[in-house]
Each structure stands twice: as structure tokens, then as C-alpha cells.
């Protein structure tokens, strides 16, 4: 447990420079989104030479977006992939993380090291052989090719995050669960996972972002156009006209909406948890924030 941040927060009022720095840095990181919004709501025909903001925002570009491409279909496909892959990821990654945290120390070390090593395998090394593998498995070209990694927790990164959270739960709690006769699954489901709920939410959010935005996998493994996901749809849009920025950025903004909501929601949730903790204990524990 770390010491409170409250003193720090109090001090911030007296020290405006860090706050200003935060504001400036935040603004810098928000620039891509800002320009996306500015361009997406421009009137479709307005020349690029005119000023960045033309005054009259329109949703014309979005209407055009849906009329020239089956963006609705692509969005549904992306949602479908995420709807299957995200819960699956949380399930298998938390299983693995839980098992790793509860296994004897030497086994634990081996798995952590293995996970770290796998994290270091560059994705490009696996493209062609995974492609061959998927077609041998008979799922080549289907949305399953995008979902398959979820069966193993998607990424060792997620497993390690869970491992870390489960390691922090005092052993006494596990032991008492065992004494009450809870099996492995029951301990995982009724004791460990509820205590690591913020971690699970964080992993779910990260997994969603990963599956929602994946560009390479659909490019390599998808066949039928009816199965295209949103990132491929955006690429298709760029093929139609690389210089039609208002339309392109309307598409980009559309595909960014859900991640945007997720990030804002996640940060608001952390803020709420921090406030609740501060009221309750007069302090902020590190746990809740770290997991976000």
C-alpha cells in the first residue's frame, strides 16, 4: 500500500505550474483528436485551402460515409469480434494469471519468464505461419481468425496484469477460502476475481481497444467483404479518395467514438474511486488507479 496522494492534491492548488504543464501536455496529446473533429464536421465540398474551421459544422460527411460504404456492417462486425473476444480474454487471462499467482514459486517464475519472452516475439514473425495455421484449422477467412488469440488471454501482457493483481491479495484470504472447502474455480470466481474487479475492467477495456482497432489481422486473414471490420473499412475509404479529408476523418472519428467513450469513462471511474477512497480513508490507495 502506498501513502496518500492527498497532500499532493492539496499542494497542487498552491503550485499552478504542474497543473499548467498537465494541461499543456494533455492538449498536445489531444491534437490528433481535435483535428479529426474539426475536419470531420467541415462541409464536404469546402476547399482545403480555407481555414481549419469553417464555421458551419455539418454531419454531411457522416451521411456520405454510410451511403458509400457499408460502414454499419463493418461496425457490427467489429462489435461482434469484440463482444466475443473481450469476455473470453478476461476469462482465460484471469485463469492463467490466477493459476500463476497460486502455483508454487519455481513454477511461477518459469511462467512469468515464459510470458516475458513471448511478449518479445515480434508480431511480424508470426504472420505467414499463422495464416497457414488458420487455414489448416479450417477457420481461414472467417471472423474466428480475429478472435482466436482470445482463447489464450490475447496477450501475455494481460495475463501478467492479472498475475500481478492476484499476487497482491493476501495469501490468508486464499487459505481461508480453501479451509472453507472452496475449489480452485470457486476461489477464482468468488474470491480472487471480485477482489480484482478493477483489474478485470481494465483488462477488458484494453482488450476491447486491441480488438476494435486491429488492422493487421483483418488485412492478413479475412476473406469475405461481408466480414470486414471497421479498420479495414477505413482503409477502403482511403482507397476511394486519399485527399477527401473531411470524409476520411469523419470515418476515423466514427471508429474512435467507442474507444473515446471508454477512455473517458475509465478515467472518470478512477476519479470516482479515488474520491470515494479519499472520503473514506482520507487517502488514496494506489490499487484502484494502477489498474486503470
Amino acid at each position: 500500500m502506498t501513502r496518500p496522494d492527498a497532500t499532493h492534491a492539496k499542494g497542487a492548488g498552491l503550485k499552478p505550474i504542474p497543473a499548467l504543464l498537465r494541461l499543456a501536455l494533455a492538449a498536445l496529446f489531444l491534437l490528433p483528436l481535435l483535428f479529426m473533429v474539426l475536419a470531420a464536421f467541415r462541409p464536404a465540398g469546402s476547399p482545403l485551402t480555407s481555414s481549419l474551421w469553417t464555421g458551419l459544422p455539418t454531419v454531411e460527411n457522416f451521411r456520405k460515409l454510410f451511403s458509400i460504404l457499408p460502414i454499419g456492417r463493418y461496425t457490427l462486425n467489429s462489435l461482434l469480434v469484440a463482444a466475443v473476444a473481450v469476455p473470453l480474454t478476461v476469462l482465460t487471462a484471469s485463469w492463467a494469471g490466477f493459476a500463476m499467482a497460486r502455483l508454487p514459486r519455481p513454477t511461477q517464475r518459469r511462467w512469468v519468464l515464459l510470458s516475458l519472452l513471448v511478449l518479445m516475439i515480434p508480431g511480424v514473425a508470426l504472420w505467414s505461419s499463422r495464416f497457414i495455421l488458420y487455414s489448416r484449422l479450417g477457420i481461414g477467412g472467417t471472423l474466428w481468425t480475429l478472435i482466436v488469440p482470445a482463447f489464450m488471454g490475447t496477450s501475455p501482457f494481460f495475463v501478467l496484469i492479472f498475475y500481478r493483481a492476484f499476487r497482491r491479495i493476501p495469501t490468508a484470504i486464499y487459505d481461508s477460502a480453501r479451509l472453507e472447502g472452496a475449489g480452485v474455480l470457486a476461489t477464482w470466481g468468488r474470491v480472487a476475481l471480485p477482489m480484482a474487479r478493477p483489474t478485470a475492467v481494465a483488462v477488458a477495456a484494453l482488450a476491447f481497444i486491441l480488438y476494435w482497432g486491429d488492422y493487421i489481422s483483418p488485412l492478413l486473414y479475412l476473406g469475405d467483404a461481408a466480414r470486414y471490420t471497421l479498420p479495414v473499412g477505413l482503409q477502403l475509404l482511403a482507397q476511394l479518395g486519399r485527399s477527401n479529408y473531411p470524409l476520411l476523418l469523419a470515418g476515423a472519428l466514427w471508429s474512435t467514438l467507442l474507444p473515446l467513450l471508454l477512455v473517458v469513462g475509465g478515467v472518470l471511474a478512477v476519479a470516482a474511486v479515488e474520491r470515494a477512497h479519499a472520503r473514506k480513508f482520507g487517502s488514496i490507495t494506489g490499487q484502484s488507479e494502477r489498474d486503470n
Partner: peptide, 22 residues
């Protein structure tokens, strides 16, 4: 019916499809 957005991707896609025997 399968539709590949760009000509470049289309070419690569066909090659990989032939490679995978599909």
C-alpha cells in the same frame, strides 16, 4: 462475392489465398 479494397491488397490477398490452397 469477396471484395478487396485496394489493388495492392487484392494482389497480395490472391497470392496468399492461392498459397493457403483456398
Amino acid at each position: 462475392l469477396t471484395h478487396i479494397p485496394s489493388a495492392g491488397d487484392y494482389s497480395a490477398k490472391l497470392v496468399t489465398d492461392f498459397a493457403a490452397g483456398t
